[in-house]
Computed example of a mutant assay.
Amino acid sequence: MTRRIGVLGGYGAVGSAAVRLLAARFDGIVRVGGRDGKRAEAAADALAAGEAAEVDLWDDAALAAFCRDCAVVVHAGGPSYQVVDRVARAAFAAGADYVDAGGDLPLYERLAGTERRAVVTAGMMPGLSGLLPRWLAARTGPVGRLETYAGVLDRLTPAGAVDYLLSLGGRDAESQAVWQDGRRVTRSAAPQVDVRLPFFPGVVSAFPYLGYEPERLAQQLAIPDVRWYSVFDGGAAMMSTLARLQGAMSGEGDLAAAAAELAEAAELDMFGREPYQRMVFTAHPADGSAPSTLVAGSRDTSVLTGTVCGLAALQVLSGAVVPGRAFAAEALDAETLVADLRETDALSVFELLTEAAELREASEEGVL
């Protein structure tokens, strides 16, 4: 029997990248689903082995039909805060495993007790941002201190803008927090405003926070100290818009209108500039030896997220992921994912720097 992987939202910015990856690496049928049947057909017709499905994820019968006969269902469309576990439950009912490009803690918590394979936050951040430090730690040995700087200058999709707003709303408890001496320490790190950081172009600002991903990373790898920074590049329009959208961040008011306003601000900040995504991880070995820095980046957030999502689906299909719910950063085989990811065009930079001279030279050149 021919195997199928279904990608819901398969013609969108993230889903189309997952579909392209699967079309190149999967020897079965890729089912492309979405509300617009014509767009789904166009996307499926471009594949050697594709099929289209017109499906509204809020239509129980249509969603069940989409999941039927799929070995894995990938969700790459719709705001996570609305969808939560709706698609996952339909996949499980059809006997399929599940991969979600987003979801975060709410979805992870909803999937407690499942016996199917379910991988959540299989995207760039969170996701790849938690997996790459594990890849790095496998090369350095036990880590005594980890510093991470992650920044994005890119456009926002409508669903991405909604999820971004809500993620910021949960940052109060995380803002300026660090992992120090094996525990969370709140309000202990100051922002770095209008500074030049290695491997980031121009002047940026870095805001420390400790979300669930770095905290779980610190606990699981027994790293005593973790400093995690979100980097903002310019962003005058976005920053001023965010200051007006405090209610939307907490789920109040018209989220769709707020998301549209934020997406427009992001577009203004992009004027005359090239998009980029950059993640810089510096691991200081526990034995006091020289630190190693991993610099990874892309020119398209959606392409990188969708590519990671597609690779996650292949690992689930292969049986490399154990049954049960899991975050992508913790469930996926880091060596395999990084090796496969580097064979795609989703990364514009991937450099491991281990010597002081290498770090200085690469920082001066921007590694690009």
Rank of each mutant, 00 (worst) to 15 (best):
M1D: 03
M1H: 15
V14G: 00
R25T: 06
V30P: 05
G33C: 13
K38Q: 15
A40V: 05
A40F: 05
A42P: 01
D45C: 07
A46Q: 01
A53C: 05
E54T: 15
L57E: 00
D59I: 01
D59H: 08
A61S: 06
A64E: 12
A65I: 01
C70W: 03
A71D: 11
V72C: 03
V73I: 08
P79N: 09
Y81D: 04
R86Y: 10
V87R: 00
A91L: 12
F92H: 15
G95D: 07
A96P: 10
A101S: 14
R110G: 09
T114K: 04
T114G: 10
V120F: 06
A122Q: 03
G123T: 03
W135D: 01
A138K: 04
G141S: 08
V143D: 02
V143H: 00
R145V: 06
Y149E: 04
A150D: 01
A150R: 08
R155G: 12
A159M: 00
G160D: 00
Y164E: 13
D172T: 15
Q176P: 00
W179G: 04
Q180K: 07
D194Q: 13
V195F: 02
P201N: 14
S205H: 02
G211D: 03
Q220F: 10
W228G: 04
G235F: 02
A237N: 12
M238I: 10
G247E: 08
A258W: 05
A260M: 14
L262H: 10
E264T: 06
D269E: 01
M270H: 01
F271V: 13
F271N: 09
G272E: 07
R273Y: 02
P275K: 04
F281D: 00
T282L: 05
P285S: 11
S289D: 02
S289G: 12
A290L: 13
P291K: 13
A296E: 02
S298T: 09
R299S: 10
G324C: 06
A328T: 13
A329G: 10
E335A: 14
E335R: 07
T336E: 03
R342V: 14
E343R: 15
E343V: 08
D345R: 14
S348W: 06
T354S: 11
E355F: 14
E358P: 05
E358F: 14
E358I: 15
E361N: 12
